[in-house]
């Protein structure tokens, strides 16, 4: 975040929720909210879109299933047809288990990688840690300062919502 911002924290998630709603109503730009655990209702208060990650999982799974099924079908009809227990070469029921496992494997991995890559999270990722207490018991709000907006005004607004420990990077 190479932008000017103010951070302030709350001690309780209900206070935080109330504050976020108020700040949003005032038209302030909330760059981020950092919490120690997922706060129920926060995504609505921040007006986030619904996640599309489940679509990634769906298509990942579809690709996995198709790959698994077609590969088995190819092996037994074209690649190296072998007679196993008098079964037909194109034995759909016995392709099902591997097809299913491939679907789950691809779905799970594509989704998790999409999640990590989208947010640039990964082993040794460099991210800004505003306050080490936010993984413990603090709820931090990061409010952006626009050129035209008044720093004092934002600070007043934050204090009005019960925020503590206001700091900024300007």
């Amino acid at each position: 975040m190479n932008k000017d911002y103010i951070t302030a924290y709350y001690n309780d998630e209900e206070e935080l929720l109330k504050a976020v709603r108020q700040l949003k109503d005032k038209g302030l730009e909330i760059l981020d909210v950092l919490t120690p655990f997922p706060v129920h209702g926060l995504d609505k208060a921040l007006r986030m879109r619904r996640s599309r990650l489940s679509m990634v999982a769906f298509w990942g799974g579809a690709v996995g299933a198709a790959l698994g099924f077609l590969f088995q079908a190819w092996v037994f009809t074209k690649g190296y047809p072998l007679n196993f227990g008098g079964k037909p070469f194109f034995a759909i029921p016995s392709f099902m288990p591997v097809t299913f496992e491939m679907a789950v494997l691809f779905a799970a991995f594509s989704m998790v990688f999409a999640f990590l890559i989208y947010f640039k999270l990964g082993p040794g990722a460099k991210t800004v840690i505003h306050d080490e207490r936010i993984t413990d018991d603090r709820f931090l709000v990061v409010v952006g300062i626009r050129k035209e907006s008044n720093y004092q005004e934002i600070e007043q607004a934050l204090i009005a919502t019960g925020a503590e420990g206001i700091t900024h990077n300007v």
Binding site: S51, L121, A125
Partner: peptide
């Protein structure tokens, strides 16, 4: 993995 606790990440 550089976890920050951002609301977007949590969601």
């Amino acid at each position: 993995f550089g976890w920050t606790g951002s609301a977007k990440h949590w969601s």
